[in-house]
Every structure is written in structure tokens, then in C-alpha cells.
């Protein structure tokens, strides 16, 4: 038996909304330690990795008697989650050898309980091992700032060059009709931690990435006030949105490299 009671259905809604356009079908891997999801986009350029820990406060109850994989169409899951109120408590439930995933939405005052079942899918996908590595540069910034940068620069070109150096981080685009550059300096004087830009730098990095994917990742902006960008030369960038009381959602994007 698998049963996970999440206090805020809005968190699950936001996660699925941010994934469903790039990742059509995905396996939720459930174990006693929590729920993980790893998936590649159809072009195999981007990868997402979601971790929701069972021992965090976002789950009111969590039970997973044996490891199970729940293959779900994320578009369908998004439709089901639209049936939940933002303040509803959502319970996910499945048997040990499941064909069906059940969603139960309880309204805050318990006057309305709704239940939906969806059929599970067999999804043949290979899990990739993501090594724990030290990155040359980690930028922490407000998530809405990153969203704005990606959105602004995507009007002029297809790829952004991210340049991390000791003064801060530069985002540059050069297209056929024009070019643009946004410089972010490290901030030390800002009161609120979530408004700060910090750059942890071991080595400078200059790397180009497709804006189409970065813009898609920023659909996760509402999950977190801050976003962390981890970069090393000639390796995928990690765009991480921490999810309070649950874990995190990470996106990996392969770089564009001179051939």
C-alpha cells in the first residue's frame, strides 16, 4: 500500500504545471524515503529530477510498504489536479501492484471530499545516474528575476550565454536582429535573503544554453522565491527550485558547445 497525504495540493499542482509541457509521461518512484521523478524531454536535451522527502513536514501522513513505480501522463494528472481547491489536502493512494492511482481531495473544513482514479501507464524509461559533483559556480537569485531575464532575452535570440565571474553574472543574447545583455551584481545590502543575488565562484564559467528550455523551466517559478544555478564549463547547468517542507525540483540542461 502506498498513501501520501500532502497538506497543500497547490504544491503538487505547481510541480505538475511546470513539468507537463516538456515531459509528457513520467514515472513517480515511491519508496519509504519519499517520491522521486526523473524524466528526459523528447529531444534528450533536458532532464528533470523531483525529490519529495517523506520525513518533511509537507506530508501529513506517508506510507509506502514496498517500492512502486507509478507511470503517469502528466497532462492527465494536471487536469485531475485542477479539480482540487488550492487549500485542499491531497492524498495519493495506490496498491502494491497498482494499475490505478487514486487522488482524494479534502477541503479545508472537510465539507467536500472528491475522489478521482486514473489508469497508470507502463513507461519504459532508463534512469540516468546523476553524479554528485562540485560545480565551478553556484548562483543564487530571486526566481522571478531569473524568469524575467529568460523571458526578456528570448525575444532576441535562441541561446543565452551565461558568464559567471567574481563580480557577478552576465546573461547575453546575440540574435540576427539585435543583441542584449543583463548584468547582475552580487548584492549584500538587500534586507530579505530571498531578494539577494549571491555568486559562489571556484572558477569562472562561460557557457551557452538554449533559451527555449530555460524559459520552460521557469514555469516552476511559483514553487520557490529563489533559484540556484550551478555551472561547470562544458557540463549541464542545474536549475534548482527548492520546495519548502518537501524537497526540490531540479532541471538539467545540456550546454551548447563549439563543435
Amino acid at each position: 500500500m502506498f498513501e501520501a497525504k500532502m497538506l497543500q495540493s497547490s504544491v503538487l499542482k505547481k510541480i505538475i504545471e511546470s513539468l507537463k509541457d516538456l515531459f509528457a509521461d513520467a514515472n513517480f518512484d515511491c519508496s519509504s524515503s519519499g517520491i522521486t521523478l526523473q524524466d528526459m524531454d523528447s529531444s534528450h536535451v533536458a532532464l528533470c529530477y523531483l525529490k519529495l522527502r517523506s520525513d518533511e513536514e509537507g506530508f501529513e501522513d506517508y506510507r509506502c510498504d514496498r517500492n512502486i513505480t507509478l507511470g503517469v501522463n502528466l497532462g492527465l494528472m494536471s487536469k485531475i489536479l485542477k479539480c482540487a481547491g488550492n487549500d485542499d489536502v491531497v492524498t495519493l493512494r495506490a496498491e502494491d501492484e497498482p494499475n490505478i492511482l487514486t487522488f482524494i481531495f479534502d477541503s479545508k473544513n472537510s465539507e467536500r471530499v472528491s475522489k478521482y482514479d486514473i489508469k497508470l501507464m507502463e513507461i519504459d524509461s532508463e534512469l540516468l545516474g546523476i553524479p554528485d559533483t562540485d560545480y565551478s559556480c553556484v548562483v543564487k537569485m530571486p526566481s522571478h528575476e531569473f524568469q524575467r531575464i529568460c523571458s526578456n532575452l528570448s525575444q532576441l535570440g535562441d541561446s543565452v550565454t551565461i558568464d559567471c565571474h567574481k563580480e557577478g553574472v552576465d546573461f547575453k543574447v546575440a540574435g540576427e536582429q539585435g543583441s542584449g545583455a543583463i548584468k547582475l551584481k552580487q548584492t549584500t545590502s538587500v534586507d530579505k535573503e530571498e531578494d539577494q543575488v549571491t555568486v559562489q565562484l571556484n572558477e569562472p564559467v562561460t557557457q551557452s544554453f538554449a533559451l527555449k528550455f530555460l524559459c520552460a523551466f521557469t514555469k516552476a517559478t511559483s514553487l520557490s522565491d529563489t533559484v540556484n544555478l550551478s555551472l561547470t564549463q562544458d557540463t549541464p547547468v542545474v536549475v534548482e527550485y527548492p520546495i519548502a517542507q518537501h524537497g526540490y525540483l531540479r532541471f538539467y540542461l545540456a550546454p551548447k558547445i563549439e563543435e
Binding site: 528526459m40 534528450h44 536535451v45 533536458a46 532532464l47 532508463e126 534512469l127 540516468l128 545516474g129 546523476i130 553524479p131 541561446s159 551557452s208 538554449a210 557540463t235 549541464p236 538539467y252 540542461l253 545540456a254 550546454p255 551548447k256 558547445i257 563549439e258 563543435e259
Partner: peptide
Amino acid sequence: MIGQQKISSFFRVA
């Protein structure tokens, strides 16, 4: 020539 890399060329199958 700038080429888009694949994510699978960086991470191995687990």
C-alpha cells in the same frame, strides 16, 4: 559551429 549537446552524453544509465 555551436552544437546542442544531449543530456545522455553527460550522464550514464544508472
